[in-house]
């Protein structure tokens, strides 16, 4: 019983370390898109691990903790995707290290084609 609780506590500790690293990535990364990469997703993983560790400590709480884990896991990719897409459309710049940008190339093509049709 006691060992199970310690296992849960260690999982929770790993989750909080992941949260800390996610926040560190948020501070260190050069542009918005890389911040989303490290920030929101490492922190989602960290919170899921933190809550999963509590399942071992309080088996009676399993139902609500599973709901929270599923909710965080489903809602966060959606919100970060929507934010990144709309920020890209609003023109938030990419970092200078960026190697390739297929979306900009394709958007350019689309903007050019209707103009040609109009002329």
């Amino acid at each position: 019983m006691e060992t199970l609780k310690i296992i849960g506590a260690v999982i929770t500790l790993m989750g909080s370390i992941a949260l800390l690293l996610g926040a560190l990535g948020l501070v260190r990364m050069p542009d918005l898109y890389n911040r989303i990469q490290t920030g929101t997703k490492a922190s989602t993983f960290g919170t899921m691990l933190t809550l999963f560790g509590l399942v071992f400590i309080f088996p009676g709480w399993t139902g609500k903790l599973i709901i929270l884990i599923l909710f965080v896991g489903i809602s966060n990719p959606v919100s970060s995707h929507v934010l990144a897409r709309n920020a890209y459309r609003a023109g938030v710049p990419l970092t200078g290290k960026t190697t390739v940008d297929r979306l900009a190339e394709d958007m350019e093509k689309k903007n050019v084609e209707p103009k040609n049709d109009a002329q």
Partner: peptide, 14 residues
């Protein structure tokens, strides 16, 4: 994130 040189090579692929 941890490594001091920040080895990233970002880009948007299709």
């Amino acid at each position: 994130v941890i490594s001091p040189k920040l080895p990233i090579n970002p880009g948007i692929v299709k």
